[in-house]
Amino acid sequence: MQQHFYIADSEAVADAHELLTHYGENARSEAAARASRSRDVGNIVHFCRWRQIARLVEWMDSEDIDATLH
């Protein structure tokens, strides 16, 4: 199953890379935790951003990428 998601900007890719470098296999959990904290304080913009980054981290860390990269 192919997954589609939106990448807002190159900074999101850099943040995903930084999380993977720093947290390794726990990078997605860290991004999800940041999204939760943003939601808890009512910051919907950062909530959405960190949710997108969590999906991007999962995709970047995947062994079987089945998509066109642009």
Rank of each mutant, 00 (worst) to 15 (best):
M1E: 14
Q2P: 12
Q2T: 11
Q3M: 03
H4M: 00
H4I: 05
F5L: 10
Y6F: 11
D9S: 15
S10H: 09
E11C: 00
A12G: 00
V13H: 03
V13K: 00
A14S: 15
A14K: 13
D15H: 12
E18Y: 02
E18R: 11
L20S: 04
L20E: 03
T21S: 14
H22V: 08
G24R: 04
E25T: 06
E25W: 03
E25R: 08
N26I: 00
A27G: 04
S29K: 10
E30G: 01
R34Q: 07
R34V: 00
R34L: 12
R34H: 08
R34E: 03
S36T: 14
S38N: 06
R39G: 02
R39F: 15
V41N: 09
G42H: 11
G42L: 07
G42T: 12
G42Q: 04
N43T: 04
N43E: 03
V45P: 02
V45L: 13
F47W: 15
F47V: 10
F47S: 05
R49V: 08
W50V: 02
W50L: 03
W50D: 14
Q52L: 07
Q52F: 01
I53Q: 09
I53W: 06
A54N: 06
A54M: 07
A54W: 11
A54Q: 10
A54T: 05
R55D: 12
R55W: 09
R55N: 14
L56H: 07
E58A: 13
E58T: 11
E58F: 06
E58P: 00
E58N: 05
E58H: 07
M60T: 01
M60P: 02
D61Y: 06
S62L: 06
D64M: 07
D64T: 12
I65H: 12
I65R: 10
A67K: 08
A67R: 12
A67D: 06
A67V: 13
T68H: 11
L69M: 14
H70P: 13
